[in-house]
Each structure stands twice: as structure tokens, then as C-alpha cells.
Design a protein around this nucleic acid. Structure first.
Lengths: 191, 191
DNA sequence: CAGCATACGGAGCTAATATTCCGTTTGTGA
DNA sequence: TCACAAACGGAATATTAGCTCCGTATGCTG
């Protein structure tokens, strides 16, 4: 809500970048358990410097999560251009999943995006919701998607697919999970 | 592996029960974050007593998780009696999900049953695997289930459904998730 | 290049929790 | 009822991780 980052000193700007970068790496590897000390060390700065830039650990995490959610919006926007609506939807799901592959932190952020109260993410989520909702409507109208499917359902199944990625039950492959779910999203034959 | 619980003193046996019971309650509410102090307090015993019965927190949690996995096996065994194989499978899924509803600790245990190394659970899981595998085979033979479905897939989709229960993305209902997945488990019409 | 506001570093403070230790209490067999 | 091993209670300890504080260093402006 504030853009008061007037003329940051050169070293400060450089360090901020390094901290974000180190944070991304360690958040990807360790999730929210990532430790501030280690982030500082990897960034090559002192802990005090990390706290100068981000008042709390949560602020640092939120800042990274926001970036990532924005990415989801961009993925969806790009996929919307696909002519076939069903294909567009599957592309959003697959690309989003691929985007968090190997990134434990964002897997958890994606699954728990409601539970944890990331602040300042609303805007990014709203964009995603708008685009995906349009794609869904188009696919339903084309008769390629079950008529009762909603954006909330989209979040729900993405959460499930991500859980396969994170927990790897039985070493399972998320692409298989996606395939099964995708089949379940077709309109029921006749009933 | 050891049955050296020869003649536990009466108060000790009573306390052990109380600790398990308090542990179940708090584990259900708080998950693995449940605190030993609080468990002791709720059980009406000192912390030392808890540690006399369970050498570590993990030992206490494992002991409870083992009980619960056994329950899954019993649910499956019961469901196997259902004549219609497809119905039997859906019953296992639904009943298992219901069994962990409102129990945060077991939701996490179920999703992370591979990741976390609960020791001494193998036996319970083997029973579950055997029963469910039989049900799956029967349903496939009846043409009611996609032919490539395996027990690993079962674990995978259960993990997904449980994630809806735990993370509640957009306030989603796990029964809806189950319904969608169940549709995806049907044999593909023609392809 | 001087002066100073900005920024840095990291030792140490604090809070939260699992776990230990040992003096006290109690069930039980003789 | 006695004696004592078994069990208990909970203060104290150990550890971990987020965060603060303040003395020091350094870009930037004039």
C-alpha cells in the first residue's frame, strides 16, 4: 500500500535483491521453515540487514508469495489465448503445477493460500480468478466441461494435485493425478 | 517389537490410557504442533509421567497414528463385503475420509504417511493395501473402474481429497472433490 | 573531500518447547 | 502393616529460531 521507496541507496538496493534471491532459493528448498540466519548468510549480508529490509520473516515470505501468485495470473492470461477452451483450462492447470514443481515453499503457499493469511495477495488472486472464470465459462459453453464447475473447484483440484507434488504418496506423479482429475471434469455421459 | 509390558501398576495403566486419550484429542485439534505440556495437563498427570510412558513426543504420535491406520484397514475390510465393487471402493474412500474429518493430526498423517517416517506402521498399511488392491481388481474386472488404476493411485487421490479437508481452499467441500475424482476413475468412454 | 544520514553486522535477548532429573508419593507382595 | 520398587510431579535445563540494539561503515550531496 506504500510506494515510499524513494531513492534507496545503491548498496541497499543490491542487498535487497540478494536477500530476495536467497530467500527464494531457501524457501523453495525448505518451505516456511527456511531460517532467517541462513537466508542472511546465503545473501552474504548480516541478519540485521535482512530485518532492515523486511520487518518480519512473514513480510519476506509474503513478498515472495505475491510475486509467485502474479506469475499464476500471467500463466492464465497466456493460456486464455488458446482457441480450444478445454485445452486452455488444462494448460493453466499444467503450467501452474509446473511452475511450483520443485518449490516446496510455493507448493505449501498454493495449498494453504486461504488458511495462511498472506496479506496483499488479494489483487493477484483476483486477476487469476477473473481469467480462469472466463476460461471455465467458455469450456462449459462448448460442452467440454461439467456444467457445475466453478473457480472454487479449480482451486480445490489444484490443491489436490499440489498435494501429490508435496507429499508424494507412494512416490506418485502429479501428472497422473492431473490426468485423472481432468477426466473427472468432463461432462457426465448421461445420468 | 517388544511385549515387555509385564504387569503395569494399576495407576500406571490408568495414566497411560489418559495420556493416549488426551493426546488423541489435542493431536486432533492441533496436529503435530500439539504440546506435550498441554497433553500432560489435559491427562491430569505431570510431564514426567508422559515421558515415562512415551520416551519422545514422536513415540506418542506414532502410537496414535498406528491405531488410526489400523482403523483404515478395518474400514476397508468391512467395505469389501459390499457386492458391487465400484460401490465398495467408493465406500472405502468416503468412510476413510469421514474417519479423519475434524482430525487435523490424522489428516496430516494420512497425507504425509510416506514423507514422515512413522515407524511400526508398515503392518497396518500392508493390510490396507491388500484389501484395497483386491477391491480395485474386482472393480476393474467388472468394467467399472479404469483399467490402469492401482493402489498407489488410491493413496494419491486420497491424499488430494484430504488436502481439501485440511486446507479448505475457498471453503471447498471434500465430498465434492471425491465426486469429481470418482468420475475420473470410470473407464474412459472410447478413445 | 567533508559531513552525515543511511545502511550494515552480528552478538545477544527473548520466547517457545521438548526433555531431563531427582525428591516425593503410592501400589503391591509378603 | 511394612518395605520398597515402580511411578509420579514439575522445576530446571537445553535448544532453537525470530528479532532487537547499537556501535561501525559507507554511499551520497554540496
Amino acid at each position: 500500500m506504500s510506494t515510499e521507496q524513494r531513492t534507496l541507496r545503491a548498496d541497499a538496493r543490491r542487498n535487497r535483491e540478494r536477500i530476495m534471491s536467497a530467500g527464494r532459493e531457501l524457501f523453495a528448498r525448505d518451505g516456511p521453515e527456511a531460517q532467517m540466519d541462513e537466508i542472511a548468510a546465503r545473501a552474504g549480508v548480516g541478519i540485521g540487514t535482512v530485518y532492515r529490509h523486511f520487518p518480519t520473516k512473514e513480510a519476506l515470505l509474503t513478498s515472495m508469495v505475491r510475486d509467485r501468485f502474479q506469475e499464476f495470473g500471467e500463466i492464465a492470461t497466456l493460456a486464455e489465448e488458446t482457441v480450444d477452451a478445454q485445452e486452455a483450462l488444462e494448460t493453466v492447470m499444467r503450467r501452474s503445477a509446473e511452475a511450483v514443481e520443485g518449490d516446496v515453499g510455493f507448493q505449501l503457499a498454493m495449498m494453504g493460500s486461504e488458511q495462511l493469511e498472506w496479506e496483499g495477495i488479494e489483487e493477484q488472486k483476483a486477476v487469476l480468478a477473473a481469467v480462469v472464470t472466463r476460461i471455465i465459462r467458455r469450456a462449459v459453453d462448448a460442452g467440454a466441461l461439467r456444467g457445475d464447475f466453478t473457480f472454487e473447484d479449480f482451486g480445490m483440484v489444484m490443491c489436490g494435485i499440489t498435494s501429490t507434488m508435496y507429499y508424494k504418496p507412494g512416490g506418485a506423479d502429479w501428472r497422473r493425478h492431473l490426468a485423472i482429475v481432468a477426466d473427472g471434469l468432463r461432462p457426465p455421459p448421461e445420468r
